[in-house]
Design a protein around this nucleic acid. Structure first.
Lengths: 233, 233
DNA sequence: TCAATAGTGTCTTTTAGACATTATATG
DNA sequence: CATATAATGTCTAAAAGACACTATTGA
């Protein structure tokens, strides 16, 4: 009974899946694509590709976004989330997937084609939301929680906005990702007093259609970790 | 020039490497083993094994510790750190490695055999420290920083001590991992006022050889995240 | 007795949060 | 003018940190 018929150690398929989050219309949204497999018609999946043998994992992540959603965002924030290796996570066989988290500003050109779409994060898991393929219903909550958590102790919120930005725009990122309202005055004080979070830029941003005082513009600072942190209420 | 001679998408070897940290004699220590390969004689490596085709990633991590260091710690804290997929990280070929972070109380039976040893984290990277094989000099700092960081906002420090423990023992964990001295009075107040961090247990712990008041015993609480966090000074 | 460690009390400084006030825009 | 948003000021409550003090042990 100790004579295996197959090699115990085998190469297995390695893939990358990317959870791309963005904030559009003050709502946190996730990019999903339609899977290739006909059996999965009607479901949605994170854009993902097999890792090529001459390709780094980050490169596979970028290629997944480019090939499956037409998104080329070399400046987008991209970080590893976690690797999912459950034996049965893919019905086609053993596939180990390295999941990535990507954060981008709202694309002025939203990829609302048939193949790729942005979905409200708030609707995921509800009857109105999309049905997720594979084990992506396990990856997606991890990605969202990572984003929510990293907004606290890193300057990652700035990855959601184009430069230059106003502190009102930055605050709306926090409000969309966390799903809470923040006091504008206290938010401003925390941001500008946290070293390296943002740097003042030139000029003023015009107010919205309803009027309002023009806002100062800011750029990303050089700090990666925030001291003190922006704690969730 | 667009006719590849080898398949662009191939299965590649998947391995798991485990960075096991413990606190011994008030110093943060890392478990390293001697690699199998003769070419790597004199260097030290994280215990790691190839993933079997019938085995989950966590199982491979446990097996790595058991087979290479004789450590069977099913209750130890084990979490994924990151996956390292650089093309050239292993001279034997393309190996994608899923790195794990393991935290355990000091083994009463330290694995100081020829094959496995605990090394002071403070000496890593110095002339007195071990030379690391593969790309493990990139993994190890990530593991240490993860542990230092998670002590702030999680109850992970309790993974380093056996139950029941005293708050003095818990404080010495923080001091060893962070490398700073903490005020005992303020530390105690923070810990007991953070909901779910620790729970009072029965009895008192005897003082050390130099005397001192007997300390109350505590057990791990049920909180995973600490609110408020234990911030580094 | 003294030295050592545990645990409590208290004070000061810092930070977070609520909310009023002023500034500058649109309609 | 009213309304909207930006930016500043001020007050209060909570938290962090310094440090004195008491409690209980071993030597």
């Amino acid at each position: 009974m100790s004579a295996p018929t197959a090699p115990r150690v085998a190469s297995c398929a390695v893939a990358v899946d990317v959870a791309l989050l963005t904030v559009r219309n003050d709502r946190l949204q996730l990019l999903l694509v339609q899977p290739d497999a006909a059996a999965l018609r009607g479901t949605w999946a994170l854009p993902g590709r097999r890792v090529r043998d001459d390709e780094g994992l980050d490169d596979t992540a970028h290629r997944s976004l480019a090939e499956l959603a037409g998104i080329t965002a070399p400046e987008a924030h991209l970080e590893q989330l976690r690797t999912y290796g459950e034996l049965t996570r893919d019905p086609r066989g053993r596939v180990v997937s390295v999941a990535y988290l990507a954060l981008t500003p709202t694309p002025g050109d939203p990829p609302d084609t048939d193949r790729a779409q942005l979905f409200d994060v708030a609707r995921l898991g509800t009857a109105e939301g999309p049905t997720l393929a594979y084990d992506h219903d396990r990856i997606v909550p991890d990605a969202i929680e990572r984003a929510r958590s990293k907004l606290e102790y890193s300057a990652l919120a700035t990855a959601f906005v184009e430069e230059p930005f106003t502190l009102g725009e930055l605050r709306s990122i926090y409000e969309a990702v966390w799903g809470v309202a923040l006091d504008p005055a206290n938010f401003r004080r925390k941001v500008v007093s946290t070293p390296g979070f943002v740097e003042e830029a030139e000029g003023l941003a015009p107010p919205g259609p309803g009027g309002g005082r023009p806002a100062k513009r800011y750029r990303r600072g050089h700090a990666r970790r925030l001291h003190p942190a922006m704690l969730r209420p």
